[in-house]
Design a protein around this nucleic acid. Structure first.
Lengths: 331, 331
DNA sequence: TTGAAAGCGCTAACAT
DNA sequence: ATGTTAGCGCTTTCAA
């Protein structure tokens, strides 16, 4: 490690206290003489002294550190979100610990505990855990927590999520109104708020278009490419003569679906249209048009970071925020 | 914060020392009686005690923490890499601090210093800094550093990178051999090793195919979508009648190029073929075939993590490793 | 077989 | 206007 405050003090011929006060900009408040201040600052500069933030955190019980837990950094949506959050943190002089849960509750729990033991000041979590466990095991961690993307319906939990209901509704409504009669649904884990709301949006949009809901073409598993592959197989093997469209509830599911179609099935954009939740720049250049729902990661990150900042500043308000996504229609 | 070691000691009626020894699995070595050990362990379990890793790190001068600095998490390549590194770190009980540099030297330097002040045990960096500054300002940070992706040619610096020369060579060679005569080059910052080697690969492949190098169709700026847009504009505005192909040196540059073409120019896959460094699943489904060079992020991450693990374990070997990328030809 | 005490680098209450 | 000192939670040397 580098030079420390006591050495600066020795060189300057003053005490640690004086040095500490000066470098923390409280020289004036404590009426340290201009001369002493100058001397100290000069030495600090000369020796390139930076206070050990770790020791400082130890003493202050404030580490200027937040933990960010997401399911999978490889998922475009979460990498966008993580970038935005890290950028904000950087701006406000926080460091961010990143941890992936792979959408496993146990892993998430471990990661959170590890971060907590490293004394993060707060946590932003795109969680896969159930509300009961969160209430029992996470909330009593005595640090601010903001849930992002997947909301946790509770008066005691702050969250920011996109309007998954509306997003799915708009997309399905669009697909129905432009010719699709029978749209298969490929989704992720049922217990997540995102899943529930997207499914509700799907159902209501069907109803609004006088199409009856058919649970046999609704398949849900994980938000992964692998699941997308598998679920696409189920729907297309069982009901390919029935469905004329497919809704994938995430980009990862879309990727799996496309892979399945490419590997196994005969692809025909005329007979099988796909619409997806989440967006990606490359969707603009595909050989077929995929309408998509773009979430506002910038706003989500901003909102989550604001919430946690407020909480870190001592404001104990619980807030819920819903961010509107945008339907992207191509061609 | 939670319960601490002294409280456990009080409850057990023993000293902190004893508790510390037992929970760190050194009860046997110090011949703490089975009875005492059992008692302590029972209390630890009952109270859900986990030692404060932060305080532990303070005392031990070892935080079980590494810093990962990448240009931009939104870039697919770096999000893949980050995921892999975080997964490995998690497996070996390290936490990772993530920091983005936005490919700005000053930002990178700031981020590194912040991480160092938080006492990370080591750093993995996809760096934008020049060798001179690295030698001067980073190496004397007294912690292990491994450079990834962008290598730093020095006997004193460990790095792992993909074989950028070969990757670019293979791609350009393929394009030449399948009809392209005049391939424009869109690249990122010239001073980076990745840029230099990709450009060399491009040049040598041209030469091998008896095509003369024309610097007027070689444009380099940043590895960003924005740059891609701009550079594509330059090449296509100035030399669209000349070039029959385009090489983009990263996925971000490709994205910018596609956007430009979509926004402004007339796109014709027959007259303008594109090949790109980096890969993405969606390239399989575009309306035109883009050959690409897929880097082995898994191996790169693995190798980098092994290097830093070795260094953290006290082995001071400097290693350099080049990982082969793979040319992906479509249709 | 176990305990007392020092100390990691910093801040802040309390002296002077 | 500046210094002394205790203490954050843990590990470890030395003592008993």
């Amino acid at each position: 490690m580098g030079i420390k405050i006591s050495e600066i003090a020795d060189i300057a011929g003053v005490s640690k206290t004086t040095v500490s006060l000066v470098i923390n900009g409280r020289g004036e408040a404590y009426r340290i003489s201009k001369k002493t201040q100058k001397k100290i600052l000069a030495i600090v500069k000369d020796k390139k002294f930076t206070p050990d933030q770790y020791a400082r955190g130890f003493r202050l019980k404030k580490t200027q550190t937040i933990g960010l837990v997401v399911p999978d950094l490889r998922n475009w949506f979460f990498s966008q979100l993580s970038y935005e959050i890290e950028a904000l943190a950087r701006k406000f002089d926080y460091q961010v610990f990143i941890g992936c849960s792979d959408d496993k509750e146990k892993t998430e729990f471990t990661v959170i505990n590890n971060l907590h033991a490293r004394r993060v000041d707060g946590l932003i979590i795109a969680s896969v855990m159930r509300k009961e466990q969160i209430t029992k095991d996470i909330l009593n961690l005595d640090i601010p927590v903001v849930y992002i993307d997947r909301r946790v319906e509770s008066e005691n939990i702050s969250w920011v999520a996109s309007d998954n209901y509306q997003g799915a509704y708009d997309l399905i409504d669009h697909m129905c109104k432009t010719g699709s009669q029978k749209i298969g649904y490929l989704g992720g884990m049922e217990h997540l708020s995102t899943s529930k709301n997207r499914l509700r949006g799907y159902q209501d949009a069907l109803e609004a278009n006088s199409i009856s809901y058919d649970s046999s073409i609704v398949h849900q598993k994980n938000y992964t490419l692998l699941s997308g592959y598998e679920l696409a197989g189920q729907v297309l093997a069982d009901s390919s003569e029935i469905v004329d469209g497919l809704f994938t509830a995430s980009l990862t599911l879309l990727e799996g679906t496309l892979k399945y179609i490419k590997d196994i099935a005969e692809w025909s954009p005329e007979t099988l249209r796909i619409g997806t939740y989440d967006d990606h720049p490359f969707l603009d250049y595909l050989s077929f048009n995929i309408p998509s729902v773009r979430q506002n990661t910038h706003k989500m990150a901003q909102s989550a970071f604001e919430m946690i900042s407020d909480m870190l500043a001592g404001k104990k308000v619980i807030k819920h925020e819903v961010i509107a996504p945008k339907l992207i229609i191509r061609k």
